[in-house]
Write a protein that binds this DNA or RNA. Structure first.
Lengths: 104, 104
DNA sequence: TTGTCAAATCGAAAAAAATCGATATGATGT
DNA sequence: ACATCATATCGATTTTTTTCGATTTGACAA
């Protein structure tokens, strides 16, 4: 099994920017309104909107619209998918160790 | 527990570029010489060197020098660290669910 | 010491991403 | 219908990343 070299970067881009990691940290206490994040993060509203798009595209965050508010939360499924990707690397690693150990 | 917003991006940058994911996939069959990667990947030598630096900085890959050759392999510890980071998000998520469930 | 080969570093160019202010959209309340 | 508020989109700028060719470094062998 190999990682998809197109999809994998999309998933992990969520974790490749300082502001997005800050957002994820905020979201770990639970679902938050975009307006709330905006107060805490000291970035422009359009910048936040951009980051939320990257985060939802990655699958690590899901958005829910309620009236004119957008609520964002961390997706357990998204994290599990990312974890699975890392396990793919890990599993192959174990296999290759086994191979070199048993064949000679 | 929160993710370090400086260190986390460094770790996951390993997985944020198509060529680096290809490199990681190659390395899953075991340790490989840089010259070997160079043959397979169709990128300039200086570009490969740059990517190997990003990968080793992340901790997901380790390098070993043997004479004039550099051998690279995936680091189980590096993958475990990255997995741990994802678990931090996951664990907080479970905690926050528990909180909202029990308090009201 | 000199030549050769592998890899790293340098410097520049191209591509991608982050950021912002301004504007558009879309829901709500008057 | 209209004003208002939250968010998304647009367009432009700045910053970061990727990429390459050229050069340097460092190891080995003649």
């Amino acid at each position: 099994m190999k990682l998809d070299d197109k999809r994998t970067p999309v998933v992990f881009k969520a974790l490749c920017d300082e502001n997005r990691v800050r957002i994820l940290n905020y979201l770990t206490d639970g679902e938050k309104c975009a307006c709330r994040l905006l107060e805490d993060l000291n970035i422009a509203q359009s910048t936040l909107s951009h980051h939320m798009k990257v985060l939802t595209d990655s699958g690590l965050v899901v958005g829910r619209k309620d009236g004119k508010w957008m609520y964002y939360s961390i997706s357990a499924e998204g994290i599990d998918t990312a974890t699975y990707y890392l396990n793919v690397l890990r599993a192959n690693l174990i296999d290759s160790k086994k191979k070199s150990c048993c064949k000679e």
